[in-house]
Structures are given as structure tokens and as C-alpha cells.
Design a protein around this nucleic acid. Structure first.
Lengths: 150, 150
DNA sequence: CTCATTGCAAATGATTTGCAAGAAA
DNA sequence: TTTCTTGCAAATCATTTGCAATGAG
């Protein structure tokens, strides 16, 4: 039997949070993701987790990352380019993408302050939430300009 | 010979804007994209452009969309995992994604006011720009809740 | 026991690429 | 004429899925 808990009821639908079986694979995937601040892709994580669960398959990594991000335990980062990247940090924070090397960083200071009335509606759309990302140059890439370029 | 124009010189690199051959294919792809507010995918656009250039290939559509978005003529909207969508509107504006049907809308009113000092640097990163997207429910989906659901 | 989850491999979907022929400049 | 661009098909890359075997509860 599949147990479920109702987390919230909206006009749109019931949002369920599934309580799943606690597998060694899922536990280790989450554990390894939480050790990293590098926002790894599914296959990065596969390579890492493989060292602890040698027979794990890439499909299992994908399945678990999907489930974990659906229930809000981890975050899937969009706009990461080709492959999705994952963030094990549960707290809300901004991300910055290095336009030179593609690295993704967590921003601890808030570079933008949002004030003013945040509308609930615009052009007929109901606004549920918003997302802010930054694009910039990481410290390493910036330093290499200084030393190697003009 | 490939002509190039230097658009800007940054510490990082020369940013070139290529002046390319003016092909019928590119012209029509851009024309059709600009007729739409639906933010079509490459293959949506391929189906449309096909009606005017019957022998065009999907590869050509991809190649031109890539070139046009690289030089800033159009905008590529990417959400990790899903297929990229394109926006022919050249002016800066926000996008909102319908969490029910996936539709993408342009926001004409600014739902968020950004104030406060916008930092140039955070956690050692140089910030070049930022991006804000909204997630919500489009007018059509919202109306169908009212009439079809409790 | 049950049935969700796994490993494996094959399937899918989106995007890219090699190459010879075609078309701008 | 030169060489960028196209059409076509095959290749690649990320992700998903079917299925029989496995393992958590």
C-alpha cells in the first residue's frame, strides 16, 4: 500500500506528499547531494553514489532525484543549460550562474531587495510565485582574467 | 569570408556580433516567430515555417534560432528538461509560466518592483545581470477551475 | 506476503552535426 | 568564385520507461 499525506488543499488540486519506502539508494543519493555545494547533475551524482552502491543504475538516480524534488526535499535548477542540476540545500536562497565556466553558486547575501506591492494578478494571470536567478562571473574565472589576460 | 563587428569589449573577451548571409529561411523564421505571442518551440516553428518553405529542415530551424538568440535578436526561454521556447519580442519584459497547462505569457505590467541597491558583487561573484520569472495560472486555466471544479 | 523500487536495457525526445549540394555576396 | 547555409540523415545527449527480479514494511 502507498501511504499519502495531504499537505495542502488548493482550489486547483490536492497536493499530496507521498511517504515512500526508505531505500538505501535514496538515502545515499540524498546524503551525497547534501555534502556538495556544486549543484551536480544527475550523472555527476551517479558517479559519486556508485562508489557506495556499486550496482546502482542511472535510472534509479533519476527516479529518486525526481521524487525528492517533487516533494520539496531538494531543488531542481532550471535554466542550468543542457542537463538539469540539483541542489540539496533546503533553505530558500538565490543562485548565480557563471557565464564563463558554467559553475553554479549559492548566494548568501541577497543582492536584490524586492519591495513594493507584489501583485497577485497581472494581465489576467494569477501569480503564485516568482523566481530570481543571477548571471555573473565566479571568483575563479574573474581572477584568471586578472592574471592571464591583458 | 565571414564579416564580424565588435559590439563590445569586456575584460572577459571580445563579444562579436556576426553579420551573416541573409537567407530566405532565416528571414521567414524570424518573421513567423514575430507574428506569435505563444513562445513556440523549435518544432512548433518548424511546422509553421514549413508552410512557406516546404523543403526547410528542422535542423535549419534550430541553427537559425540559435544564431538569432546568440546575437540577441530573439530570446530563448529554457526550463531544464523541457524543450526550449522562443520569444521574438525584442523588448525586455517578464514571463509567466502556467503551472497547469505550461503556457508562457508575456507580462506587460510589472508585478514586482525592484528597489534597493543592486549589488555588483556578492559572495565574491561579479553580478552581470539577473532574471525574474513568474509561475502562476493563466486566465483560461483559472476560469476552467471556476466552472468545472467544486 | 505485497507491491513499491531497483537494475538493466531499450526507447524517447530534443538538439546537434557531417557532408554534399545549393545559394548569397 | 568563394564559402556560408541548407537539407538530409545519422549521431548525440539527457531523461524516461518496460519488465522481471529484489527488498522494504
Amino acid at each position: 500500500m502507498l501511504y499519502s499525506v495531504i499537505v495542502a488543499v488548493t482550489k486547483e488540486s490536492l497536493i499530496m506528499k507521498e511517504i515512500r519506502r526508505n531505500t538505501k539508494q535514496q538515502q545515499i543519493i540524498l546524503e551525497e547531494l547534501r555534502k556538495l555545494t556544486s549543484h551536480p547533475s544527475a550523472s555527476d551524482l551517479y558517479q559519486i553514489v556508485r562508489k557506495r552502491v556499486s550496482r546502482i543504475s542511472l535510472g534509479t538516480v533519476y527516479r529518486n532525484l525526481q521524487l525528492l524534488s517533487k516533494n520539496g526535499t531538494i531543488r531542481k535548477l532550471d535554466m542550468a543549460g543542457r542537463e538539469a542540476r540539483f541542489d540539496g540545500r533546503p533553505d530558500s536562497h538565490y543562485h548565480i550562474f557563471c557565464s564563463k565556466c558554467g559553475k553554479i553558486g549559492d548566494l548568501n547575501e541577497s543582492p536584490i531587495v524586492i519591495t513594493g506591492s507584489v501583485l497577485k494578478e497581472a494581465d489576467g494571470w494569477k501569480i503564485l510565485k516568482h523566481r530570481i536567478d543571477f548571471i555573473g562571473v565566479c571568483p575563479e574565472c574573474w581572477n584568471s582574467f586578472d592574471t592571464n589576460n591583458v
